[in-house]
Design a protein around this nucleic acid. Sequence first.
DNA 1: TTGTACGCGTTATCAT
DNA 2: ATGATAACGCGTACAA
Lengths: 342, 342
Amino acid sequence: MTRKPATRHATITDVADAAGVSIKTVSRVFNDEPNVRPLTRDRVVKAALDLDYHPNVAARSLAGRRSFLIGLAYENPSPNYVVDLQTGALERLKGERYRLLVLPFADVGAASGKMQAIARASGLDGIVLAPPLCDDAATVAELEACGLPYARIAPTTDGSHAPDVAMDDRAATQAVIDHLVGLGHRRIGIVRGDPSHASATARLEGYRAGLKAHGLTADPVLEAQGAYTFASGYAAGKALLALADRPTAIFASNDDMAAGVLNAAYEAGVSVPGALSVVGFDDSNIASVVWPRLTTVHQPIREMAHDATGALLALIEHQEAPPHQTMPFQLVVRGSTGPARA
Amino acid sequence: MTRKPATRHATITDVADAAGVSIKTVSRVFNDEPNVRPLTRDRVVKAALDLDYHPNVAARSLAGRRSFLIGLAYENPSPNYVVDLQTGALERLKGERYRLLVLPFADVGAASGKMQAIARASGLDGIVLAPPLCDDAATVAELEACGLPYARIAPTTDGSHAPDVAMDDRAATQAVIDHLVGLGHRRIGIVRGDPSHASATARLEGYRAGLKAHGLTADPVLEAQGAYTFASGYAAGKALLALADRPTAIFASNDDMAAGVLNAAYEAGVSVPGALSVVGFDDSNIASVVWPRLTTVHQPIREMAHDATGALLALIEHQEAPPHQTMPFQLVVRGSTGPARA
DNA sequence: TTGTACGCGTTATCAT
DNA sequence: ATGATAACGCGTACAA
């Protein structure tokens, strides 16, 4: 077993010496700055290659006053959602000098008011806020106050000057109701999302508005409370199916809960979509993994995370953000919905 | 709209002045070094609080020659697995000064040979390697050569001096076979995992050894190839069920594929567990979300990630790693397995 | 127990 | 187009 030689890594000075230029010129080359002759550039590049030189991140951060680190803050119980989020952000960062720090929180309370401290402790250049943090007034106010650049993914509330990439949850949910009513359903239940997520409210509103648009009256009994988790969907589904006058269709405010409803239906011996139609929201991985496959609203989380990250970069580098962006939603009809029984 | 005041953050010098001490003393306080009178310490702490002082991460990294950044490298198609991995690592880091950089790779090839460059580009102090990267000879050799501290999660191969937290995949799979044979199954199929994952081989070996232990001969026809994804499991399940002399039980090398098999069974009108028993591996989120719930091997991924991260920290800070650790596995029997038909 | 002085490897300013 | 030199904010010998 050989001892690791304490090889000092090559520094910018080494490269400068080897290339016969000053360190400033090397710096220019590595920062794609103008005013360096192609020939000089080549010499520097070659010297760097020879010496296996890599700029020191810490030194760059210290001198440049920026870390090239951005955070992705979220509080979401669904692994599928989380991975989509990360993937989108990471994809945008590919090829950039920025790196991503993931910042999961157990609940909004754990993040609220501490965001600035976390950002400084980690030396972040900016933060991408995913639901429900992006809708937390305290968090937004804090970030706004301390001037840290941030962007929001799928916010449902206003009151922020930060760039964001949103989707119209309310309209999407209305489209769900249209679909179900079109299949002949009249008694439609809902499993509400975690009330601390603003999206839960938007979807509930869309549900009610959808019913109203078709001349149906919302029945409080059919509005079961969930928490965006599989277990909560299962429990809510069980309750809904135990109703004397039970619904022929259930809209779950996300896919994980819809999967729970599906399970409750199996247990109750209610066939889907024969005796019960089920709709989810998100079109996350799980929607295509359960049986029958879920009819759901496709929410382009990856793209949203991607674009929000891009907006944040623009904000950091040019102090200006692209305009507010709204993504189109799309109802994906699969096997879990069918005509209402005559 | 108020303009953000260009407030220079307080530095260690400001705190030193305010507390009437030297910067070295402040440094001592913030690094929990001995030899500072309680009274002095209090003065420093108070001054820091007043000035809202937070140590500058970049300066610390530069002067201290370490970034307090560790990477978590993986290549895994299952969101559930990935989130468990991250959660475990993050839990261990809670309260420490270290931060986590996630490093997902599209495939081992994308990581192989580039790990060192990535580490230097991001200024990592160390890396946690998850499957299948932890079993990639090139990656391990590279890390070994450049002397970057690393730890491995659930490795299936040897040839590394790094600490690791493993599980006996082979024995676990044998236990699966024991369970199935105990239920009267004789014709047992397998959906193999992605061959680039060493775990796929270990599980295949366990499968074969399990059969042999019960005097059963392995039938190549029953060894379908999968890739650890839902879709691959679905395809493999379909193929297995289309066999003239089809299996009465199928062991899928991970839960995602087991869910795929379940879907294939539904489509083929084969009832589970009535006409077909299905077993997964991992006990990831999806195992409890499909119907029927999957009998599977519980792999404590979070704990493994947690402990491997801890081992890495020990390696970084004390140049010595805790001994190799093996986690116990556990067969979780749920609804997807039942007695073989007479 | 406390302080001084230097170095870490860059970026940035201002010459040239 | 290029270079000299001063920050950047902190850790660390070494001294007191």
